[in-house]
């Protein structure tokens, strides 16, 4: 039986009568890397803030690492490393003072690890938080999150505001952490490339609602493109094969874009004796556009980055 490191049951948050997060139920397996993707304003940050106890949910609950949320004691957060979308730390504190505060708060604070990370990121300890750039603040956030020796990492747009080199280092560190320590990672992003590299399970959130939650592999393998050329044009029956999202025509070539049951569609198309038949994988972006279109959403604003 799978152990869920993180589980939400109908989490809902209403802001001024509007549902920012609507009946969200998710399950994140222990040791897995889970990506939450959605456009800006879809409710990713609100959901994560509810997990971290920053916002109190309007309805619903959940558990993290076996402890119920919302949790009034804060105990559940002892083993969670959290990197917020914007780091709001005390602007008049020095980096080392922030770290000292954290070392007093977290029971498993790993001083050596913290020092090593500081060195690795070349973050000056004597600097005031106020004078750090956005990227440096994010680094400080990650240093803290990793120094608590987390069993679960919750990252809100972890690579936002970082330059490509740092972004890569950042993802490297996170992958290293999950590979070495078996740490569960739950991260939100609107960047498909980060998602594809890092995540094995992915959930799409749109307008506060979770559209689906699936293994990335399954998502990719069920959505493919079958190109076929038929000797006498396309047979009428081929237009209604179940599992086909869309058919594109280009001259004599017909492209069947599958949404599910790829094997079934493949056999049906083969049954029409095409003179030419080929399968193509779609890249993640196409997969998402197709799947979302099926869910009744166009991709407006989703993949601007």
């Amino acid at each position: 039986m799978t152990v869920w490191a993180l589980e939400t049951r109908g989490l809902t948050k209403v802001f001024n009568g509007e549902k920012a997060v609507d009946d969200c139920s998710l399950q994140v397996a222990q040791g897995s890397v889970f990506g939450l993707i959605g456009p800006n304003g879809a409710g990713k940050t609100t959901l994560i803030k509810m997990l971290m106890g920053v916002h109190l949910p309007t309805a619903g609950n959940g558990q993290m690492l076996g402890k119920e949320i919302p949790d009034t004691t804060g105990e559940v957060r002892q083993e969670i490393g959290y990197v917020a979308d914007t780091q709001q730390m005390y602007p008049h504190f020095k980096v080392e003072e922030i770290l000292q505060f954290c070392s007093m708060v977290y029971r498993n604070w790993d001083r050596q690890r913290c020092q090593a990370l500081l060195k690795g990121f070349e973050l000056p300890q004597g600097k005031l938080v106020r004078s750090l750039s956005k990227g440096m603040k994010t680094q400080l956030g990650l240093i803290i999150a990793l120094s608590v020796r987390p069993r679960l990492l919750i990252l809100d747009e972890p690579a936002g505001g970082l330059d490509p080199v740092l972004r890569h280092h950042f993802m490297q560190l996170i992958m290293q952490e999950t590979a070495r320590e078996g740490t569960t990672v739950f991260f939100s992003t609107h960047n498909l490339y980060d998602l594809e590299r890092a995540a094995e399970q992915v959930a799409v959130i749109m307008k506060g609602k979770i559209l689906f939650s699936k293994p990335l592999d399954q998502l990719k393998s069920s959505s493919r493109k079958i190109q076929a050329v038929f000797p006498k044009g396309m047979p009428e029956e081929a237009r209604n094969i179940p599992g086909v999202l869309r058919i594109e025509e280009q001259g004599r070539i017909y492209s069947f874009i599958t949404g599910s049951d790829f094997e079934g569609v493949w056999e049906r198309v083969q049954g029409f004796n095409p003179v030419y038949l080929e399968v193509m994988d779609l890249d993640l972006e196409d997969v998402f556009i197709n799947v979302m279109a099926k869910e009744g959403y166009t991709h407006e604003g989703l993949f601007l980055e």
Binding site: A84, Q87, M89, Y106
Partner: peptide, 9 residues
Amino acid sequence: EFLVATPLS
């Protein structure tokens, strides 16, 4: 927000 997201009640 930073403060309440730490393991403090």
